[in-house]
Computed example of a mutant assay.
Amino acid sequence: MIRDVRLDDAKAITEIYNHYIDNTVISFEEVLIEPSDMTKRIQAVLAISLPWLVLEENGIVLGYAYATQWKARSAYRFVVEVSVYLESTQGGKGLGTQLYEALFTKLKQMDLHVVIGCITLPNPASVHLHEKFGLEKVGHFANVGRKFDAWHDVGYWQVIL
């Protein structure tokens, strides 16, 4: 079941996200966060009326996807950046696709023009997912993130709705 996020999802979402902080370069954050931090992030997204969705099964959160404001300046108000995270054992089951289908359905109903995805490279699964939703690679920044004693590239994908 995919539904809108609730503040009481923050603990489960934090557990999912902290895996990526601690074990991958998918997130460039390096310090684990607390559920209170995630609650603030959820509140910030909801405060600007953007969607944050969770996928749960039998009451267990297996993943989430959301859109955030891309940049703060007014001219960018029609552009959002999207993200999706799955519980570490749930990849390859189509859950990311389900979350993005629901998220993109909501985004298309809003007064938005562009959706952007930022991907640490290499990450073929994420590239495939974003391209499945029509996003095309529009930029590549070499060696812009340093994590786990190595430099990492970032690519930007976008789609015009």
Rank of each mutant, 00 (worst) to 15 (best):
M1N: 08
M1W: 14
M1F: 13
I2W: 12
I2C: 09
I2E: 06
I2D: 04
R3C: 08
V5H: 06
L7K: 04
L7R: 11
D8N: 15
D9N: 04
K11I: 13
A12Q: 12
A12T: 04
I13Y: 08
E15A: 15
I16T: 04
Y17F: 09
Y17S: 01
Y20D: 01
Y20W: 05
D22S: 15
D22M: 11
N23G: 01
T24L: 05
I26Y: 03
V31S: 14
V31E: 15
E34W: 01
D37V: 06
M38T: 12
M38G: 01
M38H: 02
K40I: 07
R41T: 10
I42C: 10
A44H: 07
V45A: 00
L46G: 00
I48M: 11
S49V: 02
S49R: 13
P51D: 05
P51C: 01
W52F: 14
V54R: 11
V54K: 10
L55S: 00
E56W: 12
E57F: 13
N58G: 09
G59M: 01
I60Y: 14
V61I: 14
V61F: 13
V61W: 13
G63S: 02
Y64D: 11
Y64Q: 05
A65I: 02
Q69F: 02
K71R: 15
A72D: 15
R73Y: 13
S74F: 10
A75D: 08
A75E: 11
A75W: 04
A75M: 01
Y76W: 07
R77E: 15
R77F: 05
F78N: 06
F78P: 00
V79R: 00
V80Y: 06
E81P: 06
V82W: 03
V82I: 11
V82T: 11
S83V: 06
S83W: 07
V84C: 08
Y85A: 11
Y85L: 07
S88T: 12
S88E: 15
T89K: 14
Q90W: 09
Q90E: 15
G91K: 15
G92R: 11
G92C: 11
K93G: 09
K93R: 15
G94C: 05
L95W: 14
G96T: 09
T97Q: 15
E101Y: 09
E101R: 14
F104V: 05
T105Y: 05
T105P: 00
Q109N: 14
V114C: 03
V115D: 02
G117W: 01
C118H: 12
I119T: 09
L121E: 04
L121N: 00
N123F: 07
P124C: 11
A125D: 12
S126Y: 12
S126E: 13
V127M: 08
L129R: 03
L129I: 01
E131L: 03
E131Y: 03
K132D: 05
F133L: 07
F133P: 01
F133V: 05
E136H: 09
K137V: 00
K137M: 10
H140P: 01
H140G: 07
G145V: 09
F148Q: 09
D149E: 15
D149A: 13
D149R: 12
D149T: 02
A150P: 01
W151T: 00
H152C: 15
D153I: 03
V154D: 05
G155V: 07
G155R: 06
Y156W: 15
W157F: 13
Q158E: 13
Q158N: 09
V159N: 07
V159A: 08
I160H: 11
I160W: 12
L161I: 12
